[in-house]
């Protein structure tokens, strides 16, 4: 039944059938995400605003508000499938001729956060580019592949058992609408790749390295699956 629902969703059915993990949080944590003055992710957004100028993004892109809608349209295709963090790094390297901020560095997260904020509230909508088809298929295959010593796939928890509880924690449907996000468990900001690595480690599987094409493929599949849901960046999660 869930498979059919998923297939319908990938064909562009309504977003209302799906639920953000925001709904699973306590009222206090939800309030933390809603209040910009209390959301710790906004500290990284402020850092990102400063970097937007000091790292020279403004020189080409003008005001960061011009990034409205951009984050909602990733992963995209540019010579290869690419996620937003990869695009930022590519810009720094190819166009600014500087060493890009490393993946998962505070600066990289800050820039992704301020750019992501410009899409907050906008429906997730990665491009319908046929060149992305192989990566989309690979992403779905990785999502359904059992891995690790515990031999579990993403789908087994997040499709078949969403809403049930792993120990005390409700299992979300896993729609990455709020990345980069502030995780209370991390006491800091992190990307979707960080979260995927946590899950892979959790099933006792070797994670891929940061920046690996496998993560872009998984993210592409997840964003297509979340299409129509609102961007929440910077989200707060337990």
């Amino acid at each position: 039944m869930r498979r059919l629902a998923l297939a319908l969703l990938l064909l562009g059915a309504t977003a209302e059938a799906r639920e953000s993990s925001f709904a699973l949080m306590s009222p206090e944590t939800q309030a933390m995400q809603r209040e910009d003055s209390a959301n710790p992710g906004m500290l990284w957004v402020e850092e990102g605003r400063a970097l937007w100028d000091s790292a020279g993004c403004a020189g080409c892109h003008g005001d960061v508000a011009g990034m409205r809608g951009v984050a909602a349209r990733y992963p995209a295709f540019d010579a290869a499938p690419i996620d937003l963090a990869g695009r930022i790094a590519q810009c720094q390297e190819a166009r600014q001729h500087r060493t890009p901020f490393p993946r998962e560095s505070e600066e990289a997260l800050a820039l992704a956060a301020v750019i992501g904020l410009q899409s907050r509230g906008i429906p997730v909508n990665p491009p319908d580019d046929p060149r992305l088809a192989p990566a989309l298929a690979r992403g779905e295959a990785l999502y359904r592949e059992r891995r690790g010593q515990l031999d579990l796939s993403c789908a087994q928890c997040h499709d078949a058992n969403a809403g049930r509880h792993l120990a005390g924690s409700p299992i979300p449907e896993a729609h990455p609408t709020g990345y980069p996000l502030y995780r209370l468990e991390w006491q800091g900001m992190g990307s979707l790749q960080r979260r995927l690595r946590n899950c892979m480690t959790g099933v006792r599987s070797e994670p891929y390295a940061y920046g690996a094409p496998e993560y872009v493929a998984i993210e592409l599949f997840l964003m297509r699956r979340a299409a129509g849901m609102a961007v929440e960046t910077p989200a707060v999660r337990p």
Binding site: E35, S37, A38, P40, M42, L43, E47, Q187
Partner: peptide, 9 residues
């Protein structure tokens, strides 16, 4: 008044 400061703990 609401304050938020970036600091490890």
């Amino acid at each position: 008044i609401r304050t938020l400061i970036q600091h490890v703990m």
